[in-house]
Design a protein around this nucleic acid. Structure first.
Length: 403
DNA sequence: TCTGGGGTCCTAGGACCC
DNA sequence: TCTGGGGTCCTAGGACCC
């Protein structure tokens, strides 16, 4: 039985070039041409990682995800700037609006990239799409002053790899016929969905490049990675991907988390942790309300000083966007986190989201019922209740943990 | 004193229901 | 009393992405 064939498609992947750093250079033009890294508080002496570095900084070996401290060692003259997400979001909206003047077939993939389905663009089957890609680049540049790179391919997987081949400012077409020459020599890690763990396992199988992966027996991949992921790896390495461009989606969860300047002990530093948790709950509640959502599943995430992560969550009878209800559930969850080591990070997450606006949501039960918090009733350990009280006077402005 | 913050999706076991 | 499945929800962990 022959698989139904996909209709002809032309998918673009657009990736902004060194996005955060480029936005910063717009307001700090005197830094142009210098090594600049964006991350954390912009101070290499404090905890944080590089989110984006200019191409000049990358020449020193600075990479995103690298500790700021390490980046400063590699390049002492590098200029460090703090992240300013509000500003990046403004530019993100602008460049996406510029693309929307060409087509509305856009899939949001975060702050600095999108997929665009160009299949219906006039004449694209003849010219391959390079002219419309150049036109999009020009519109993005005029709207923002920023450059981007675009990959054009029959699917998202190949378009994503293609956009990375000629950075910055490139337009790269990858068709099925180009796969052996352009895609197969690349490391398997370049496939979107192959991360550090999978890369390591592939290496153990002697598979380094996408071509080697494509030639590997399917049975070997399935034996190693399971039926789903194994089959997907095989398809991906051969350039096959039928995922549609998804133009609308609903959020699944909202969360807030923070890494402490110094690691905190669950009992000895309880006051500071409790104040932190309460603040995270206020923030996530504010985010929910601003965006018009409420959620049923409340959870906390803790990262120990050895980087292990534990999560605990609790599902309420009804969705809530109330800071106090979220806080009660979050404290119950934190009470179940083993106090085995010090914590370096604490987070709060609300999932199971439903829209609150425009009567889309059924009447809320329990969650807003002041004294009877669902799930936080008799199950709540007494020491926690006391500790929760104890944090209240502390919950002021600013970060009480910046010691 | 390496290693951020905000997400999505998948897996897997147990509870519970039919 | 034992033998069964399927389906959904809840919880925890983990890989991966931007």
């Amino acid at each position: 039985m022959p698989a139904p064939t996909m209709p002809w498609r032309r998918i673009a992947h657009l990736d902004m070039d060194a996005f955060y750093a480029s936005v910063e250079l717009l307001r700090r033009p005197e830094l142009r041409g210098k090594p600049v890294a964006i991350g954390g508080h912009g101070e290499p002496s404090r905890r944080g990682v590089v989110t984006t570095a200019t191409y000049e900084a990358r020449a020193f070996g600075i990479r995103s995800g690298m500790a700021l401290r390490r980046a400063a060692e590699l390049c002492p003259q590098c200029v460090f700037l703090p992240v300013d997400f509000d500003e990046y979001r403004r530019y993100s909206r602008r460049f996406k609006a510029a693309i929307a003047t060409v087509t509305d077939r856009i899939e949001d993939r975060g702050i600095d990239e999108v997929y665009i389905d160009l299949s219906a663009v006039q004449g694209i089957r003849v010219d391959g799409g390079a002219p419309v890609a150049r036109d999009i680049q020009r519109r993005v540049l005029e709207a923002t002053g920023l450059s981007c790179s675009i990959g054009l391919a029959p699917n998202k997987l190949l378009a994503k790899i293609a956009s990375d081949l000629r950075k910055p400012g490139g337009v790269t077409i990858v068709d099925e016929a180009d796969i052996p020459a352009l895609i197969w020599p690349l490391p398997a890690r370049r496939i979107n969905g192959v991360g550090p763990k999978a890369e390591l396992q592939l290496e153990e199988l002697g598979l380094r490049t996408i071509g080697e992966l494509a030639a590997a027996p399917l049975s070997m991949l399935v034996a190693r990675f399971g039926a789903n992921y194994g089959r997907w790896l095989h398809e991906a390495a051969n350039g096959r991907d039928e995922r549609p461009v998804v133009t609308a989606s609903e959020p699944v969860s909202m969360s807030r988390e923070t890494t402490f300047e110094r690691d905190l002990h669950l009992r000895r530093d309880w006051q500071a942790l409790a104040a932190c948790l309460a603040e995270l709950c206020r923030e996530v509640a504010a985010d929910l309300r601003r965006r018009g959502y409420a959620g049923r599943t409340i959870g906390v995430k803790a990262r120990y000083d050895d980087f292990r992560i534990v999560t605990r969550d609790q599902t309420l009878p009804g969705a809530t966007d109330d800071a106090a209800a979220i806080r009660r559930a979050a404290f119950e969850c934190l009470g179940r986190v083993p106090a085995t080591r010090r914590l370096r990070l604490l987070g709060v997450r609300v999932a199971g989201l439903a829209r609150t606006g425009a009567g889309a949501e059924p009447p809320r039960r329990g969650a807003a019922g002041a004294s009877t918090a669902p799930g936080a009733s008799s199950a709540e350990p007494a020491p926690l209740a006391a500790a929760e009280q104890a944090e209240l006077p502390l919950s002021g402005e600013g970060n009480p943990l910046a010691l």
